[in-house]
């Protein structure tokens, strides 16, 4: 394909953006349903199964209901910031999906077109992901502050403290992968894991500790059980979104699930070999399937943890992040760098 033709380039990118956007939103909608169903089965219930066959239309029914409900803005709230907070939350959550490669370069049959299955390749991809996810803190902090509600304020503060604390260990856990790959471009990082018949994943080769630190920090970053202190419903009602209703609440809800998805995609890309797997060299489209399976495994893990674990106490949460996870992440860097010095990377 003639990539030098700007119209073809723009057209392909536009299609890629649309596909990625719709795919992510569909996965998010159905991971919400999957969570409710799986949690139901874990607790010996059925979960929602009335709307459509087996409850498959439930997400759309929920969306319709969210749009039609009254939007209550509490008195004395800061109205513009109150509106801005969910927009920031969902926008920053969505923005990172452009850099994740969800498949190898595909040859389209009967043509000479080679299309890499990634929306954009930038040489600072990982840094971009870290930067965008940092901005997500603002959505939550502003939501807590602007609601004029004490529960929201406490929830927002807690959430900001938790997010920035665990962002450190998350960032440091990624350094090991960068040491091994020597690049921040996510597509190249995935390509470097394609040895051993597609099983040369970073988690098997030198980064098991980094993966563990990343996984724990990622669960804390997305405010999920057992780190769901910001919305601890037994003490803070709903945390930062106590006062939010209707579509704005739905946006926060979606932002949480989009964050779950992007964090899982990053874990897959960096540690589980992205789209790599046996047979991808011969059948490139198999890579998309492998990528989806790995991401869905992570989402199932999230749901499983939520059905199994109790919640941390806030001081336990902070000391776990600062006194355990951070030193372990630094230790992982030192180990990886020393092994690299011996030439084992």
């Amino acid at each position: 394909m003639d990539w030098n033709n700007p119209w073809i380039f723009a057209g392909v990118k536009f299609i890629a953006i649309n596909v990625a956007f719709v795919a992510v939103l569909m996965i998010v909608a159905y991971s919400v349903l999957a969570e409710r169903r799986v949690l139901g089965f874990i607790q010996g219930r059925l979960g929602p199964n009335r709307v459509g066959p087996g409850g498959l239309l439930q997400p759309f029914a929920d969306l319709l209901k969210f749009i039609l409900k009254e939007d209550i803005i509490p008195d004395k709230s800061t109205r513009f910031v109150y509106f801005l907070a969910p927009v920031i939350a969902i926008t920053t959550a969505l923005m990172t999906i452009v850099v994740y490669p969800f498949g190898p370069t595909i040859h389209i049959p009967f043509t000479d077109w080679y299309v890499p299955l990634v929306v954009t390749r930038m040489d600072v991809g990982l840094l971009y992901v870290l930067g965008i996810t940092s901005v997500g803190v603002y959505g939550i902090a502003l939501a807590g502050w602007s609601s004029n509600n004490k529960y929201s304020l406490m929830g927002g503060l807690r959430s900001s403290a938790q997010l920035i604390s665990y962002e450190l260990s998350l960032g440091l856990a990624l350094i090991g992968v960068i040491l091994q790959s020597g690049t921040l471009d996510l597509y190249s990082i995935v390509e470097r894991q394609s040895g051993w018949y597609g099983m040369h994943w970073n988690i098997f080769w030198l980064q098991p500790l980094g993966f563990l630190v990343y996984l724990i920090s990622a669960i804390a970053e997305t405010n999920r059980v057992p780190f769901d202190l910001p919305e601890a419903e037994t003490e803070l009602v709903a945390g930062f979104h106590t006062e939010y209703s209707a579509m704005k609440f739905a946006l926060f809800f979606m932002a949480e699930y989009v964050n779950m998805l992007t964090v899982s995609m990053l874990a897959t890309t960096l540690f589980l070999g992205g789209w790599n797997g046996p047979g991808v060299q011969t059948f490139p489209l198999l890579g998309v399937l492998y990528f989806l399976i790995k991401v869905i495994f992570f989402i199932f893990l999230y749901i499983w943890l939520r059905g199994t674990l109790p919640r941390f106490r806030f001081d336990q949460l902070m000391s776990f992040g600062w006194k355990f996870l951070l030193p372990v992440a630094i230790l992982n860097i030192i180990i990886t760098a020393t092994l690299g010095w011996f030439g084992w990377i």
């Binding site: 953006i17 509106f83 927009v87 969902i90 926008t91 954009t120 930038m122």
Partner: peptide, 20 residues
């Protein structure tokens, strides 16, 4: 590499603002 990001940003802003 950043043009698709710009386009995507427009998408990601319209998506929450429009239903509200």
């Amino acid at each position: 590499a950043y043009w698709p990001v710009m386009i995507f940003f427009v998408f990601a802003v319209i998506f929450p603002v429009l239903p509200i």
